[in-house]
Structure formats: C-alpha cells, structure tokens
C-alpha cells in the first residue's frame, strides 16, 4: 500500500511539474499596449494695460507689443513621438474699447517659424469686459511642425491707441495634449 501511495504521489508531482505551462495567453499583445493619457496644462497668461499701447515719452501710439517665452518641453523627442493632437484654448477678457489681433508664432532653435496661429479679439469696456474664446486644434502633419518649436512669440496688435485709453486685456490659456505612448 505504501509503495502504491508513494508511487502515486511521485507520479502526481511529476505530472504537475512536467505539465506546468502557460497557456491561453498571448504575450505578443504587449505590442498593442498603448497609454493614451490626455493631459491638461496651463500655458501662458497676461494682463496688458491699455497704457502699454502708448509711448507717453514720445507721445506715440505703440500699436504692437510682443513678448517671447521658451517652451522647452515642446521639442522634446519623447513628446515629438507621442503627441497625437494638441488643442490650445485661449480665453481673452477685453476691458479695452479696441479690437485686437493676437498672433502666436512658434519658432525653433534657429528662430525659424514652424507654426503660426492667431485670432482677433473683440473690443470691450473697462466696466463691461468682453470675452473672446479661441481654440486652435493641431493634429496630423501640423503636430510635426508644432513640435519642432521650442519658443513662442506672442504679438498683440491694437487697432488704434491714444494716451487716455483705459482698460485691461487679460489672457488665460491652456493646452490639452492627447498623447500616445
């Protein structure tokens, strides 16, 4: 009886260990794993005073003001490979009684323009600011051009200006990055 039992146990063990396997699985599916996070991130913001559009020293209107900032992560090689779509959202709150043209010029390391975007902003009043929203959707081949850039030049052009002009032009902006790793 003991021999029978011991043989049985040895056989069971042998069967279990020899037949141990991994089945009904397909590890090649690992190739199909795709992370697709959607990331919301603030971009730039500003508060432009109407007085910045008039040179009081020389008594001249300043019709266009510009500023530039680097956005170093934009031309990062990882982002270049994984960014499928970018949606820029700009929200202008204009308390200046003038229309504006706002342009965004994306430049690469050599200061060559790779992508441009722009919008007009409706006039408002200091007591009754007017909101203008603008969405720039970038996808397809434009993504390649956008992700060549590492800085953006923001140009704000006022229709006309005078010394006593009052009010604030406010911008808030964010970008939604649709990524795929």
């Amino acid at each position: 009886m003991n021999k029978t039992l011991s043989r049985s146990i040895i056989m069971v063990c042998a069967c279990l260990f020899l037949t141990a396997c991994i089945k009904d699985t397909d590890f090649d599916q690992a190739e199909d794993i795709a992370l697709t996070p959607v990331v919301e991130l603030d971009l730039i913001y500003f508060n432009l005073d109407a007085r910045q559009f008039y040179d009081t020293i020389n008594s001249n209107p300043v019709l266009t003001v510009t500023d530039t900032t680097e956005i170093k992560f934009l031309d990062d090689s990882t982002l270049q490979e994984s960014l499928k779509r970018a949606e820029f959202y700009f929200k202008f709150t204009n308390g200046i009684p003038r229309n504006f043209q706002v342009d965004f010029q994306f430049l690469n390391e050599a200061n060559d323009t790779t992508y441009v975007a722009g919008t007009s902003v409706s006039e408002g009043l200091p007591t009754a600011p007017v909101i203008t929203e603008y969405i720039e959707n970038v996808e397809g081949d434009d993504i390649l051009r956008l992700t060549q850039a590492n800085k953006v030049v923001v140009s704000v052009t006022i229709a006309s200006s005078e010394e006593n002009l009052e009010g604030i032009l406010n911008l808030k902006s964010k970008t939604t990055y649709f990524l795929e790793y």
Partner: peptide
C-alpha cells in the same frame, strides 16, 4: 502651484533679449 507662464511684455529695444520666463 503652477499657473503657467506670466508674460509681462517689457519694453525692449532692438537687440534686447527677452526675459527668461521658462528658466
């Protein structure tokens, strides 16, 4: 708290470099 980059549009003369906002 990160709010993004605050542009202040400083009066610059020709050849002046911009403010290093990102840095």
């Amino acid at each position: 708290t990160l709010d993004g980059i605050n542009l202040i549009f400083p009066p610059l003369n020709e050849g002046d470099s911009t403010l290093p906002y990102y840095d």
